[in-house]
Simulated scan of single mutants.
Amino acid sequence: PYLMPERQTEKGYFELIDSLNYIDAYCKKEGMSFSYHHHDFELKKLSTGKSALQMILEETGVNVELDIYWLTKAGEDPVEWMKHYRNRTPFIHLKDMTTDGEQFFAPLGTGGVDVKAIMKEGNKAGVKWWIVEQDQCIESPLSSIKKSLAYIK
């Protein structure tokens, strides 16, 4: 989910954790798995010294759909997150980010994210789906995806 700013509080995250645990139990009962996709705001530290995302993952059994762009933008190392949550990352949102002060979305291989290291770690970790996503594009979306696919190949 995307939590609206007024819910991005410790109380809001505890309520979210309760919901995620309920949904996860229901999915498991039905033979499905459930994953949580984060943004950068879940990487802000709480009063516990941990980020909201760490708290979510420690207090639930849900998988995590790591978003490389948001991890990087928040100053985190995506490879370390992948290592730490190795058995819980079936999906990776593979994104790149410009190296200028704007830190805007970029086609894969054109920014500052170490995409090769991330893919190498993901292959070790058994990532099943690499989701190439660029939330917004400076150029046309088709041109951006063409560059990203060429880089992956």
Rank of each mutant, 00 (worst) to 15 (best):
T99E: 07
G101H: 12
Q54R: 08
L66S: 02
K50Q: 13
E6M: 13
K146S: 11
I138D: 10
A117L: 10
Q134K: 03
G101I: 08
Y22R: 15
L53D: 00
Y36L: 02
K73F: 09
L53S: 01
L66Y: 02
M82C: 00
W129P: 04
T98N: 07
N63F: 13
W81D: 03
Q103I: 04
T89V: 15
A52C: 07
F91N: 03
F105I: 09
E139C: 09
Y151D: 00
L46V: 07
W70M: 07
W70S: 04
T48K: 14
G49R: 13
A106I: 03
Y85M: 06
K120W: 11
A150Y: 15
Q134I: 02
E121A: 05
T72R: 04
E10S: 11
M55C: 08
V79W: 00
S47F: 14
S35L: 14
T60Q: 00
N87F: 09
L142C: 10
F105W: 11
V62W: 03
S148E: 02
E80T: 13
F34I: 04
L108D: 02
K28W: 10
S47N: 15
L16R: 01
T48S: 15
A150D: 13
D40M: 13
G12E: 06
R86K: 15
W70V: 03
H93R: 11
K44E: 12
G126P: 02
I56W: 00
Y36K: 03
I23F: 10
G109H: 04
N63M: 14
E42A: 06
L66I: 14
S144C: 10
L16V: 02
W129H: 12
K44T: 07
R7A: 05
W81N: 00
T110P: 03
E59V: 12
I23G: 02
H38I: 06
E80K: 15
L66V: 08
R88Q: 05
I145D: 00
I131A: 04
G111F: 05
L16I: 04
F104S: 05
Y26D: 14
C137H: 11
V62P: 01
V64Q: 04
D135E: 09
Y85V: 04
A52N: 03
L46S: 10
A150M: 14
Q103M: 08
I56M: 02
L149R: 07
G31Y: 10
I23H: 02
E133K: 14
N123Q: 12
K120D: 09
I145F: 04
K124D: 06
S33I: 07
A52Y: 01
P1T: 11
Y151W: 11
E102Y: 12
M97L: 12
I23W: 05
K50G: 09
